[in-house]
Simulated assay, not measured.
Amino acid sequence: MNLYLLRHTQPDVAPGICYGQTDLGLAASFDAELQRIRAGLAEVHVDHVHSSPLQRCQRLAAALAAGKVHQDPRLMELDFGEWELQLWETIPRGLVEVWTEDYVQHAPPGGESFFDLQQRAISFFDEVSANNEDLLVVTHAGVIRALLAHALNMQLLDAFRLRVDYGSLSQLELQDGRVTVSAVNRRF
């Protein structure tokens, strides 16, 4: 089984804005990014396409899928709660510092921790890996980092060392009950 983790393309959001589960549209560069991704995936065969229900993933997944796209809320980005759509610089510095010191266990007010995100991502992975099919999963950087950290037995606190660019592909292989990472942040 191969699990191809594809991060969505550039969203339409101003720099410095905190966003996670906010349903953002895509930047004007979407068509050009889509063509590069489509060409890069030309030799990749998948049995099914899964996607976060947020439109920045759903639109890319629909453009790449030959059939139905399976939406799954477990593939959504981190919920930043009250911080969603706020400028990072306007969020009280003390609150951000507490969160950044242990974002694995601490959640922004009204949001979720990175540990919570990883648990839902692992739940998705465990469910789909039982089918032994090759899947394309269009999702977000947080979900991709969480699954890569899980596969690499990496401390979740270190997951943000992994670079996951817009439109990049990471790949997990599951064979004989063992998960390996075949690619991280492959750009097209």
Rank of each mutant, 00 (worst) to 15 (best):
S182E: 14
G40R: 09
H8N: 09
K68T: 12
H106D: 00
A61G: 07
R38G: 00
L3Y: 08
V13E: 00
S51W: 11
Y4T: 02
L87C: 08
E112T: 06
L26E: 05
I144P: 01
L148F: 13
V104M: 08
T100P: 03
C57P: 05
H140M: 11
T139Y: 10
L95V: 04
L75C: 04
V104I: 14
N2S: 06
D31W: 08
F188D: 00
E82H: 09
V138E: 02
E112S: 10
P92K: 12
I144K: 03
Q155R: 15
I122V: 15
L3C: 15
F114Y: 15
N131K: 13
G40E: 05
D23I: 09
H8F: 09
Y19K: 07
E84V: 12
P109G: 10
V137R: 01
S129H: 09
P15R: 12
E173R: 14
M154W: 05
L75V: 04
R186N: 06
E33G: 06
V104H: 07
L148P: 05
A151V: 06
L75R: 03
T100R: 15
V104A: 13
I37V: 14
G20C: 08
S123Y: 03
A62M: 04
W99C: 03
R161K: 15
P53E: 03
G94F: 04
V143K: 03
L75K: 02
Q71A: 11
V184D: 00
G67Y: 09
R38Q: 13
N131S: 13
A27P: 12
S170Q: 07
I37H: 02
R7F: 07
I122A: 09
H106P: 02
L34T: 10
M1I: 05
W83A: 06
R120V: 05
L136G: 01
Q86W: 14
E82W: 02
A27H: 15
W88R: 10
S129R: 14
I17R: 04
R163P: 00
V104C: 15
G94V: 03
F124E: 01
P11A: 09
M76V: 11
H45Y: 11
L147D: 01
C57Y: 04
A66K: 12
G67C: 01
T90R: 10
L135K: 05
V49C: 03
Q55M: 11
I37N: 01
I17V: 15
L148S: 04
L5V: 08
H70R: 08
L148C: 08
A63Q: 11
H48P: 00
G111Y: 01
Q155V: 04
A42N: 00
A130E: 11
V179R: 11
S170K: 08
E77S: 07
E33T: 05
A65G: 04
S170F: 11
Q10C: 13
V44Y: 06
Q58E: 05
L41Y: 12
A62K: 10
C57M: 06
D158A: 15
A62Q: 13
F124S: 02
D72K: 04
N132C: 11
R178M: 14
F188M: 08
H50R: 03
L75H: 02
G40Q: 07
L24N: 08
